[in-house]
Amino acid sequence: MAITAEAPGGARAAKMRKTLLGYVPIESPFYRYHPVTRLVLFVFIGVVPIFIDMPEINFALVVLTILLLLWGKADLKRLRIYMPMIVTIAIFMFLVVFLAPGNDPTYTPVRIGPATIYYQPVFFTFASYWRLMAMLFGTILYFSTNRERDMLVALRSLKLPFIASYVVGFSIRAAGMFMEDFSTIREAEQARGLDKSALKLADQVKLYVMYLVPLFSIALRRADEISHALFARGYNFTGKVGRGDKRSDYILTKYTMTKADWAWVTGLVLAFVAAAVAEYGYGGFRLVHSPINILLRQALGIG
């Protein structure tokens, strides 16, 4: 799906692409790269923080991801929906470690006003928070700059079986369809005079639950229609045609891996392996190497 504009000569030219989390200009530098390269970048940024305990590096990954979003011309205002999650995760993590710090006698107590916190679990939580943020921003980057079609192309290029790639692609498209159905139901209620703002929280929850009944009914009807349509077009579980030959994959003919794609994929895979070896082989990213940790321990006189 794309937003179009009137081009010279009266033709309609696409200007924006609708990604899974918003719109990105069609001339975004991300689209110079093959969907497989973008998927590998996602795996790298989204998974590599597992190997990294040092909060400085994970914070740098978050900054890198934001810079990539800016470079890719993604609308950063869309990230506002994540603000409550980013804040509440921090509150949750630090509240839990404050209320249940554990009873290790080697922990160093630190008094802040009337409260006592313990340095080791609090710093561990601080580091874990930035690891989580780095992984989350990697995920946000991917879903902000890729469409369901890009995901499908990447999975098919990686030789995922037809049925699996079909289910993943169609699931994401189905989510979009149900969002539209959901909006239709809500608009129909508003047209009949429902004022949601006047409802109590309990009634709003009840209303939310009741939305699912028509949504499920629509899903059942749609499953029938789509399965008949697929049957009529000769689709089956295997993705092969009647004589047993492989079905030609039209969508893959529209994308080719360039030398730049291969270079990025190779570089990212090597960097991923290097990070894993550095951590599990040599402990290179452990908390003891964190400059912030070293400074704080010196300030608190922890040996």
């Binding site: 049925i163 079909y166 289910v167 169609f170 699931s171 994401i172 498209r173 189905a174 989510a175 979009g176 369809m177 149900f178 699912l212 949504l215 499920f216 899903a219 059942l220 749609r222 499953a223 029938d224 789509i226 399965s227 697929l230 049957f231 689709y235 089956n236 579980f237």
Partner: peptide, 13 residues
């Protein structure tokens, strides 16, 4: 094929 379709639709929900 209807089961594959319902799997995808249900995943969407």
């Amino acid at each position: 094929i209807i089961h594959v379709v319902i799997l995808a639709l249900f995943t969407g929900i």
